[in-house]
Simulated scan of single mutants.
Amino acid sequence: MAASGDVKSINELRIFESIDDLATDLAEYIAQLSEVSVRERGFFTIALTGGSLISLMGKLSEAPYNKTVDWTKWYVFWADERAVAKNHVDSNYKLTKDGFLSKVSVLNSHIYSINENLTVEEAAREYEFMIRQLVKVRTIDVSESNDCPKFDLILLELGSDGHVASLFPHHISLQHKEDWVTYITDSPEPPPERITFTLPVINSASNIVMLGVGDEKAMVVKQVIDNLTNGLDVSLPAKMVSPSEGKLVWFLDKPSASFLNAKESKQDEI
Rank of each mutant, 00 (worst) to 15 (best):
residue 222 K to G: 02
residue 197 F to H: 09
residue 227 N to W: 14
residue 195 I to G: 01
residue 243 P to E: 11
residue 193 E to T: 01
residue 219 M to A: 07
residue 242 S to K: 15
residue 233 D to R: 07
residue 221 V to W: 06
residue 222 K to H: 12
residue 240 M to V: 01
residue 199 L to E: 01
residue 264 E to N: 05
residue 239 K to L: 13
residue 189 E to T: 07
residue 202 I to C: 01
residue 226 D to G: 13
residue 264 E to F: 14
residue 218 A to E: 09
residue 189 E to K: 06
residue 201 V to T: 05
residue 254 K to E: 13
residue 196 T to I: 03
residue 229 T to R: 14
residue 203 N to T: 11
residue 232 L to P: 00
residue 218 A to H: 13
residue 252 L to G: 07
residue 233 D to I: 12
residue 255 P to C: 01
residue 231 G to I: 00
residue 205 A to D: 03
residue 235 S to C: 07
residue 250 W to Q: 10
residue 244 S to I: 11
residue 217 K to V: 02
residue 208 I to K: 04
residue 194 R to P: 01
residue 209 V to W: 15
residue 225 I to H: 04
residue 232 L to G: 10
residue 214 G to I: 08
residue 194 R to V: 00
residue 263 K to G: 08
residue 192 P to M: 08
residue 230 N to I: 14
residue 265 S to P: 00
residue 228 L to H: 06
residue 252 L to E: 15
residue 261 N to M: 01
residue 238 A to P: 14
residue 230 N to C: 05
residue 230 N to H: 15
residue 257 A to R: 13
residue 228 L to P: 07
residue 257 A to N: 09
residue 227 N to P: 02
residue 230 N to G: 11
residue 197 F to V: 02
residue 198 T to C: 02
residue 205 A to P: 14
residue 193 E to R: 14
residue 204 S to D: 07
residue 208 I to V: 05
residue 224 V to F: 12
residue 235 S to H: 10
residue 191 P to W: 06
residue 249 V to S: 12
residue 200 P to A: 11
residue 189 E to S: 05
residue 250 W to C: 08
residue 189 E to N: 13
residue 204 S to M: 13
residue 223 Q to H: 12
residue 197 F to Y: 10
residue 241 V to Q: 11
residue 263 K to N: 15
residue 253 D to W: 11
residue 215 D to L: 03
residue 186 D to I: 05
residue 186 D to N: 06
residue 235 S to V: 08
residue 231 G to K: 10
residue 255 P to E: 02
residue 213 V to P: 12
residue 222 K to L: 09
residue 192 P to T: 10
residue 242 S to Q: 14
residue 224 V to W: 15
residue 212 G to Y: 15
residue 190 P to N: 02
residue 248 L to H: 13
residue 260 L to S: 00
residue 223 Q to Y: 15
residue 212 G to E: 12
residue 226 D to L: 04
residue 264 E to L: 12
residue 192 P to R: 07
residue 251 F to E: 05
residue 235 S to F: 09
residue 199 L to D: 01
residue 264 E to G: 04
residue 238 A to G: 14
residue 203 N to Q: 11
residue 234 V to D: 15
residue 229 T to S: 12
residue 195 I to V: 08
residue 215 D to S: 12
residue 254 K to Y: 14
residue 240 M to E: 06
